[in-house]
Design a protein around this nucleic acid. Structure first.
Lengths: 131, 131, 131, 131
DNA sequence: GTGGTCTAGACCACC
DNA sequence: GTGGTCTAGACCACG
């Protein structure tokens, strides 16, 4: 699929999965009404324990982003897209804030931070979507 | 002191302490030869378990940034400043990369990311060092 | 028909169907000898998977409340009415007991429970049968 | 402790635990600031897998009813009591509604329902708290 | 086939 | 010691 999970980056796998599903919905890759991969399928594909995926899905259900069809599977909820687009900015903003805050606390001036920012932007610009 | 620890931001406390000590050295707030606060004192000041501070100090010793001083206490090692200045950029860069990478994966375009970046910069510019 | 199925209330659909058929028999809406709707028809009407209806019917057959009729369909068994009337009180009593028990465990006093009871009674009194 | 878990009553164990903790807080048996039993201790006491307890605790944390002290344990959050008292009525009301609604659908008249209600009240009145 | 729950046991980070 | 995460594998209810 379109997910890129890193089991060792410190962020819990179930959380990475949740975030990436939200991002996929925000982008329209997954749209309201779409069925999402079954727990078992996604687990197999990402080489992750099904329980971990199930945990992600349950979290997303609790947030109202996924909706259950008894015995059939899960689908993207109706209002999910707007919600995910909202959250996308929030989620990114949150982390960016942490980093910028730390950068300032480290004593770097705005110019140095700006330089680092440009560098990161450049380093990621050529990476393909799959990475 | 000059530290700003947030026990709830997901980053281990011992790691936050290590980073902030490095930043203090990079900025010259702590200079080679300076004694650093005792485990007990710093723990009391930051309202943190002494074991956690001890762990931070051990990590910094292992990196050669702190040096044991006659069995009395720890002091900033001689070459520490240059090393810490080097690390400062690396540490910030590392985290910034993670965030930018995720931002791109989320489907945000460069312009949106830029906007979020400016916003974070602005939101942190007025914050005092203590926050 | 006269059923009111809620797929999301935690009670298995097949069980809701079984209970409501029993209630219909207890009330005389369905009478011994009456043919009941085919699995297909009822499934279509309630927008439920036919397997689920089949399971309900099997359960009712096993209890002797429905009887196979010349290989053509199912009908309400002879002694069903009395049995269903007996069960009606038992079924309701059972669930009521659970709730009251939990209410007491929760520390609510009899007066508070009584108030909640009256409230529920009032809230359901005006609801039409279809809801 | 003060919990009464029935692994076979259809309600998930983790949910029963959550509810009973909320009830304990509502009653003041557990008060804001109190440490709650460790995952392992409660699991041992209730003869339940620790993961199941952990799930309950995580749910309660997500609701803001429990608060974490890193490496130390969980405690009842400040505003928890009011919240739990509110929820207590809601939780009981919810289930009571279901039952009353079903009772009406079953064709029982108010008088019969009332009789069942009184009976349940009587049957539970003499039961000790432990049951 | 689907998801939901539970157990068992492991490892980790933190205090 | 604490909770958090993950894996493995099982069973269940539902469609």
């Amino acid at each position: 699929m379109f997910f890129d999970i890193d089991p060792d980056n410190g962020i819990p796998i179930y959380d990475q999965v949740m975030r990436q599903i939200k991002f996929a919905i925000a982008q329209g890759v997954l749209r309201p009404g779409d069925r999402i991969p079954s727990v078992r399928d996604l687990a197999k594909e990402l080489v992750i324990n099904p329980n971990t995926i199930a945990r992600s899905y349950q979290g997303l259900q609790a947030e109202g982003i996924l909706a259950a069809n008894r015995g059939i599977g899960l689908e993207v909820a109706k209002g999910a897209r707007a919600e995910c687009q909202r959250q996308r900015k929030t989620l990114v903003h949150e982390r960016l804030m942490q980093v910028i805050l730390e950068a300032r606390q480290s004593g770097l001036d705005e110019e140095s931070i700006e330089r680092l920012y440009r560098q990161c932007l450049a380093e990621t610009s050529t990476r393909s979507v799959s990475q």
